[in-house]
Design a protein around this nucleic acid. Structure first.
Length: 848
RNA sequence: GCGGGCGUGGUGGAACUGGUAGACGCGCCAGACUCAAAAUCUGGUACCGCAAGGUGUGUCGGUUCGAUUCCGACCGCCCGCACCA
């Protein structure tokens, strides 16, 4: 018997599949449809283990559904605009376009080596002019429908490179290339009005029952609906100030009024207050990232103004500008109640403001209750609050709201944390925004007939700033309204826009409109979407928004793009380091649990397992593994052991184990003896010996089907191991047709996971057809059923004995048998029987 | 800071709606085959104990006849936070 040659076999079957166009999307027909999609990759140059994991899972679903008789759409494309291409262009002097398409070519080969059942005829890249042309049309339609508007937003500005920086390009407050201290600057930019859909996007989460609960929770929190009260303070200079609060009940605990540094009133005051200008400048040194702003030390500036308490005009609260008050949330102004909000408390302690507890927990005394360094945010009764004293938090909220509404200075409002989506990017490698700025007509939208706005052939990265802004040939145009001189918008769209509708485009990737409605009506929504948890919020929310906006425009019939969602975990590996820093796995040999350098045998420290990353040098390239063991081995590894939603650790030992299993299956099939011919009927009068085998085969078939339906790949793998062990134990005493049934079940059940090996085995079993086209094995519940059950017997919840009963044995009989066991008698000795619990056909528990 | 998640043998993990904790894989140990090694096959493997038995699912507490599973508090690690994708 020859060893299984994965390299040859995989190449052979991949070309056979392609020659017979097995994975070309079928015509609509009357079969049920199944749209399987994995998040398309950024073409970084090489596939990595994360891709291998993600695309293997999707491929298993696609192949499984095809076998079950579904029409399957399983496409692939490229999320091809973005920063890395610009960085490469700047560093290596290549064009971002060439760099990107070369990477795509490499990665396409890498993916093909995995044996994925993709319809490559539908492939596109978001940087294809054809794709971003359609995206520009969408932008114009969104604009006409009022889903796009112009507003101001902060950006990270690098004063040396004269450019806007992404958050990841800001390191410790400095530009990553120039090292210059980054400033926050305001720019006039384009926004998508996602907040118009806030309530819908929130409410519809409840309908997404095939999404992970944690993703829905994250989205819910991100949208951040809060019901609260907006009310007005009267200031000492006679002005009015609106604040928003979700805790009106704590109004008597107020000790200051906080203004955002970006609040219009702050800006107004700064005009005549140099120190405030300095303070605002200081606040702007903090980056634009929320985490950074909230982690920064609390800073405040006393404006000298005071605000009168709405229930006591003589009670004056200082009005302070505070760096932790965000302009984008509520009204950009708050009242601070230090006793019941941690940020306010930190701030109050720093600036010596009073801390008055007004909500007292039920087990504390109002007279002595005080707040130290930790704010009390739990439930309780109101105190120190005049007419609110003794009320619950909820009642007090309602009371304050009612009184302020009656006084005409307050209004109950709903507020969302969700902000509108800023889509302008000052970058040259993105989808150009199809707008023109005219001195006379202002901002003018292009006509559809003027599209596409193509990126310039050559993008000049030799100087600082945005290349599109400097390319006057490209930038200068005539105004579509008045024909006078005008210039293009030199910003491009956030690459999140590109990935917000590509799934709809795959339904007909070359349609003359963004979306072919007929095709989308058939294929959408995506039945199973798979991707990383890191996209749980933004990408999914933006895609949901796009789909709704397109729905309003009549471009698509559905509201929610992804019926089923699954987020897979990351791929990790041990890290190694020596005195000179990180060491790559292939520079290391391991002996007896210790690691050494291959070249000079110097000891290497083994570090924790972490997400594979270039920076920690703990990357294993899928191509290497495929070259050594083949695609089926890497696929099997990705599906084995670790539940798909959890992080997986790549280990050499595990890979070798998978490889051995590939060989074992091949040996089982190729050396099988005494099989009945293909298509042989199983005799009705089977002996118990062969019947027992059938029972297990059908039981495993049922299990594996169920596991795959629920994306429990690791469990399916475990069941296949058990099935393999069973087929290995078959001998000359077993019926030949039963043996064939067992082996064919093994091959077809593993086929979605190890498709190449399955084809080879299918041939070896005498079939001329493709395993990839064979129908999914069926199981017969009548064969699975067993008439005996094992019953554990416990005394006081502790296992003492086991017995076998015939299912349906009466309770009396079961208990009598249980009480007769030696071990039970011994365990009960000298203790009076209290009661017996019997769960039919499951367990007996004797309480003494 | 805010939000989300995870924690079970030497190791990855399994345990359906609260009902025998450790399926299956890796590793390790023993045996078979072999001149030998590799590969393969068979058996064993939570911990303590000769055994009877006892102890065990991050820690502490609670509910229950019975808790890995439900509740509360804590500890540790990981992810997201709007210009990375």
């Amino acid at each position: 018997m020859a060893r299984y040659n994965a390299k040859e076999s995989e190449k052979h079957w991949q070309s056979e599949w392609e020659r017979h166009q097995l994975f070309k999307t079928p015509e609509h027909g009357d079969k049920p449809k199944c749209y399987v999609l994995e998040m398309f990759p950024y073409p970084s140059g090489r596939i990595h283990m994360g891709h291998a994991r993600n695309y293997t899972m999707g491929d298993v679903i696609a192949r499984f559904r095809r076998a079950q008789g579904y029409n399957v759409l399983h496409p692939m494309g490229w999320d091809a605009f973005g920063l890395p291409a610009e960085n490469a262009a700047r560093d290596k002097g290549v064009s971002p376009r060439d760099w990107t398409y070369e990477n795509i070519a490499h990665m396409r080969e890498g993916l093909k080596m995995l044996g994925l059942s993709l319809d490559w005829t539908r492939e596109f890249a978001t940087c294809d002019p054809e794709y971003y042309h359609q995206q520009q049309k969408l932008f114009l339609q969104f604009y006409k429908a009022g889903f796009v508007y112009r507003g101001e937003a902060d950006v990270n500005w690098d004063p040396v490179d004269q450019t806007v920086l992404a958050n990841e390009q800001v390191i410790d407050g400095r530009g990553w290339r120039s090292g210059a201290v980054v400033e926050r600057r305001k720019l006039s930019q384009w926004f998508f009005k996602i907040t118009a859909f806030a309530e819908e996007l929130l409410a519809a989460l409840d309908t997404l029952d095939q999404w992970p609960e944690k993703v829905r929770i994250m989205q819910r929190n991100w949208i951040g609906k809060s019901e609260g009260l907006k009310f007005q303070f009267t200031l000492s200079d006679g002005g009015k100030l609106d604040v928003f609060t979700t805790r009106p009940d704590t109004l008597f605990g107020a000790s200051f009024v906080g203004l955002s540094p970006d609040h219009p009133l702050t800006q107004e005051l700064a005009k005549t207050d140099l120190k405030l200008q300095d303070f605002i400048a200081e606040c702007r040194k903090t980056g634009t990232a929320e985490a950074e702003i909230e982690k920064a030390d609390k800073l405040g500036y006393d404006t000298g103004l005071t605000a009168a308490h709405p229930f006591d005009p003589n009670w004056k609260l200082p009005v302070m500008v505070a760096n932790f008050v965000l302009m984008g949330y509520g009204t950009g102004a708050i009242f601070g109640c230090p006793a019941h909000d941690q940020r306010d408390l930190d701030f109050a302690r720093k600036y010596g403001l009073s801390v008055i507890p007004v909500v007292v927990p039920s087990d504390a005394d109002a007279k002595t209750f005080s707040v130290g360094t930790e704010a009390y945010v739990g439930p309780g009764k109101l105190a120190n609050s005049q007419f609110l004293d003794g009320m619950t938090v909820e009642a007090a909220k309602a009371e304050v709201a009612a009184r302020l509404e009656k006084a005409g200075i307050g209004e109950r409002t709903v507020n969302y944390r969700l902000r509108d989506w800023l889509v302008s990017r000052q970058r040259p490698w993105g989808c150009p925004i199809p707008m023109v700025h005219c001195a006379k007509c202002g901002v003018v939208a292009l006509k559809e007939s003027d599209l596409p706005v193509l990126l310039p052939e050559k993008i000049d990265f030799s100087k600082s700033g945005n290349p599109l802004d400097r390319d006057l040939n490209w930038k200068n145009v005539t105004c579509p309204e008045c024909g006078g001189p005008a210039h293009r918008d030199t910003d491009t769209l956030d690459t999140f826009a590109d990935s917000s509708w590509y799934f709809a485009r795959f339904c007909d990737p070359h349609a003359r409109e963004p979306v072919n409605k007929d095709a989308a009506d058939y294929w959408m929504p995506v039945d199973q979407y798979i991707g990383g948890i890191e996209h749980a919020i933004l990408h999914l929310l933006y895609a949901r928004f796009f789909t709704r906006a397109m729905n309003r425009l009549g471009l698509i019939g559905i509201q929610e793009p992804f019926a089923g969602m699954f987020t897979q975990g990351m791929v990790c590996h041990e890290t190694y380091r020596d005195a000179d820093g990180w060491v790559t796995p292939d520079e290391v040999v391991k002996e007896g649990g210790k690691a050494y350098r291959k070249d000079n045998h110097a000891p290497v420290e083994i570090g924790s397992s972490e997400k594979m990353s270039k920076s920690k040098k703990n990357v294993i390239a899928p191509e290497t593994i495929i070259a050594d063991y083949g695609a089926d081995t890497i696929r099997w590894f990705m599906l084995s052991d670790t539940p798909p939603e959890r992080d997986i650790e790549w280990t050499d030992a595990g890979a070798e184990g998978c490889w051995r299993f590939v060989q074992r299956v091949w040996r089982l099939v190729s050396t099988a003896e005494g099989l009945a011919p293909t298509g042989a009927k199983i005799p009705a009068d089977l002996d118990e010996y062969s019947l027992g085998v059938r029972r297990v085969v059908h039981r495993r078939t049922a299990e594996i089907t169920d596991h795959l339906q629920n994306l429990r790949f690791n469990r399916a793998v475990a069941s296949i191991y058990e099935l393999a062990t069973l087929t290995g134990s078959l001998n000359e005493k077993h019926n030949g047709a039963v043996k064939r049934e067992a082996l064919e079940a093994l091959v077809l059940l593993m086929a979605p996971m190890m498709p190449h090996l399955a084809e080879e085995c299918w041939r070896a079993l005498g079939h001329e057809s493709f395993a990839a086209q064979a129908p999914w094995p069926q199981f017969d519940p009548g064969i699975i059923a067993s008439n005996v059950a094992n019953i554990p017997i416990q005394v006081n919840g502790k296992l003492r004995a086991n017995m076998e009963i015939v299912i349906g044995t009466s309770q009396e009989e079961v208990l009598a048998k249980a009480l007769a066991f030696d071990a039970i008698v011994r365990a009960m000795e000298g203790k009076p029987l209290k009661k017996i619990i019997y769960v039919p056909n499951r367990i007996v528990n004797i309480v003494v």
